[in-house]
């Protein structure tokens, strides 16, 4: 299980799960260990779902304000980004992109 990034825990879905687990822990229904097991399973499930079930492609344009490469993680701050999907365009004033290496170093 450890070969999956924990990156997606900070997504909306991950936060929702974490909050739910925390409620259960507070109520004394599950142990923190079990909650961590659930999160690890989530890491796996979300990664597989994104890889195997999502087909959408997107294009992102904008001006790069900040870039950072640290510990194999790229972080970009894009101002006035423009997201193009197949049939939809979305824009925002600023977006932060956090990208982990698709090829994990331990795999290579």
């Amino acid at each position: 299980m450890s070969q999956y990034y924990e990156l997606y825990r900070t997504s909306t879905l991950g936060f929702a799960l974490t909050d739910s687990l925390d409620e259960l822990i507070q109520a004394g229904h599950i142990t923190p260990q079990l909650a961590i097991r659930v999160l690890m399973q989530y890491d796996k499930s979300i990664a597989e779902a994104l890889t195997n079930h999502v087909k959408a492609r997107a294009t992102i344009k904008g001006s790069l304000k900040t870039y950072r490469f640290c510990d194999d993680v790229w972080t970009f701050i894009i101002s006035n980004p423009n997201f193009k999907f197949e049939n939809e365009v979305v824009s925002a004033d600023k977006v932060k992109i956090v990208a982990c290496n698709a090829r994990r170093p331990d795999e290579a």
Binding site: L13, T51, A56, A58, L64, V90, A102
Partner: peptide, 22 residues
């Protein structure tokens, strides 16, 4: 980029592949 979850304008978008030109 690949396997992304986007939170933009309060909405979630998913992509399998994305190209970024900055």
């Amino acid at each position: 980029l690949k396997d992304g979850i986007m939170l933009v304008n309060g909405r979630n978008y998913l992509f399998h592949k994305a190209n970024g030109d900055f």
